[in-house]
């Protein structure tokens, strides 16, 4: 089973929930950080990271100017302004390339060969019995989904081989990177807070992710802060509330020390073990069981 923890608004507690779920999970687990722009899960799980860091690449074209006849077919095909033709010079803009491979396929002169652009790095590690996997986008790289896809592929290989569950920390937002993180998941856990910003972005996330028709539930973080509107919205849209994490300065302080919230107190430990139970019930389609968190 793959569970993705997503949000909409940033800073609602995705990493807190992911790290805590990893801490209480009762089956062999792979904890995955797909927030490749700002990966933080390792700061809380503190896995022992394996030293052989793997780089992820995207295939992009390189020009052999001697073979190029300046026909312009590649320029006409490229949708990303990554190739230009001015008078008698063909120029490639490797940073703009989306790696579709179209230019290389359409060039009949063999003037565009295979090159690479570094997307970032992939890290693996362990904390106790739990395996850890994450991606880190290279600073200056604009596209995060290709690196996320490379991490997801690695994840699927591990899951297939070892039969683990995966808990995935997603990037914030509701556009392409966030969708890339949730779209192959079995269950989506949305973390929201009850502030006006939190509610507004939660509604956008619901609108975006509910079209995927996957079992989806919500964790309300900093419960008691802000307004009650989020409960009304969940009620109206039949979104199961999987857990509530109380608003408490002590939790914020523990987080600021890099602690895993499920380990702060017995009560909080119970919040996350019952969250795990509710996620399983949600995945099994047993919504009647959910909600007594």
């Amino acid at each position: 089973m793959k569970i993705t923890v997503a949000s909409g608004k940033g800073g609602t507690g995705k990493t807190t929930v992911t790290a805590s779920l990893a801490a209480v999970w009762d089956r062999p687990l792979l904890a995955v950080d797909l927030d490749v722009e700002e990966p933080n899960l390792h700061l809380f799980l503190q896995p022992e990271i394996s030293t052989d860091v793997e780089k992820a690449w995207m295939e992009i074209p390189v020009l052999d100017a001697e073979k190029c006849t300046l026909c312009g077919d590649c320029v006409n095909l490229c949708q990303f302004k990554a190739i230009s033709l001015m008078i008698s010079t063909l120029t490639l803009y490797p940073d703009m390339c989306h790696g579709c491979g179209g230019c290389m396929a359409i060039c009949s002169k063999g003037a565009l060969g295979k090159g690479q652009r570094e997307l970032g790095t992939i890290h693996q590690g362990r904390v106790g019995e739990t395996r850890f996997l994450s991606g880190t986008l290279r600073i200056g790289e604009a596209m995060s989904p290709p690196l996320m896809e490379a991490v997801k592929k690695k994840m699927d290989d591990i899951l297939e081989l070892e039969g683990r569950d995966a808990v995935i920390d997603a990037p914030p937002g509701v556009s392409c990177p966030a969708l890339c993180a949730v779209m192959d998941s079995d269950v989506i856990v949305l973390v929201a807070d009850a502030t006006p910003f939190g509610l507004h972005d939660f509604k956008l996330a619901w609108e975006s992710f509910s079209s995927l028709a996957k079992p989806t539930g919500v964790v309300i973080n900093r419960a008691g802060m802000g307004t009650r509107e989020i409960y009304t919205f969940c009620g109206e849209n039949a979104i199961p509330i999987l857990a509530e994490i109380p608003f408490d300065r002590k939790i914020a302080e523990a987080y600021s020390q890099g602690r895993i919230i499920a380990e702060v107190s017995a009560e909080l430990g119970t919040v996350f073990s019952s969250l795990q139970k509710n996620i399983r019930a949600l995945a099994a389609g047993d919504t009647g069981e959910v909600g007594d968190a």
Binding site: E38, G173, P177
Partner: peptide, 11 residues
């Protein structure tokens, strides 16, 4: 701005 360091931030 936007969180992250990717496409919309660079833009």
């Amino acid at each position: 701005g936007v969180p992250g360091v990717g496409c919309p931030v660079i833009s």
